[in-house]
């Protein structure tokens, strides 16, 4: 579904991503792991259209989408939940959700989808008319995911969804992601919480210093191996 080839992202003279290639197949959950500063967020942002890559190509469903803006990517079916949730605090939960559906052509189905998300995340129903800034961190994360899902994405990009959340909520988040796979949504997931990500994902890539240093299916990334990769070992790919 998604193919990234030789992606490079530069911030001025800093090369955050250097020649990254990866792919995500239909219905998979793919994890993007790595230490801080490895280039995971930049890679995701480039796919989502929030950044323009300096080099490389991004192909989605056979169409080349390199450098397409975020607005366009949403309409292609790629939605991102960025790091830190970034819900609109001064807008109500209802308005936040409706914004997720901005790009939808089938307006009639939207309210049904809103209902589905409220079923999935009951706390949102309770605060439906309140300003989103009133929600706790975990609740905001649920709102952010619900908002992204309202765009009916084919590919969902998640940047550190469990960051800063209490363990119980981390469970909720990962359960939700697993259920998304069951519903047929493909997920590309950036995570610091490597152990949970490794359990959940079908495949994982490990980034370090802007490049991919390992790729492995589920069950083959043990904690020691992961630790070594984070800290400096290089694997022959």
């Amino acid at each position: 579904m998604l193919t990234v080839a030789d992606l490079s992202v530069h911030y001025g003279r800093i090369r955050a991503v250097r020649g990254v290639s990866l792919r995500v197949d239909d219905g998979e959950i793919v994890g993007l792991l790595g230490p801080n500063g490895a280039g995971k967020t930049s890679t995701l942002a480039a796919v989502a259209g929030a950044l323009r890559p300096a080099e490389g190509t991004v192909t989605f469903d056979g169409t080349e989408v390199t450098g397409h803006s975020a607005e366009r990517m949403v309409r292609h079916g790629v939605t991102m939940v960025p790091e830190g949730r970034r819900i609109f605090a001064t807008l109500t939960v209802a308005e936040n959700l409706s914004l997720g559906a901005t790009a939808r052509r089938d307006r009639a189905a939207v309210s049904g989808d809103v209902e589905d998300q409220l079923e999935r995340f009951p706390v949102l129903r309770r605060y439906y008319r309140s300003p989103a800034g009133r929600l706790s961190g975990g609740e905001q994360q649920q709102l952010a995911i619900a908002r992204a899902l309202l765009a009916r994405p084919r590919l969902l990009l998640l940047d550190e969804p469990s960051l800063g959340l209490a363990p119980l909520l981390v469970d909720l988040v990962f359960d939700t992601i697993a259920r998304l796979r069951a519903e047929g949504i493909t997920v590309l997931l950036v995570e610091q919480n490597a152990s949970r990500a490794v359990e959940l994902a079908d495949r994982c890539y490990v980034l370090r210093g802007g490049g991919i240093v390992a790729e492995a299916p589920r069950g083959q990334l043990h904690p020691d191996r992961l630790g070594a990769l984070y800290l400096g070992d290089r694997e022959v790919l």
Partner: peptide, 24 residues
């Protein structure tokens, strides 16, 4: 109005609004 809500969202966080599909 939808455009009005989009405008308020854009005023709060322009980039995130774009990530929701709002046409900047």
């Amino acid at each position: 109005t939808r455009l009005g809500v989009q405008m308020r969202a854009a005023a709060e966080d322009f980039g995130m609004a774009q990530l929701c599909g709002v046409r900047g």
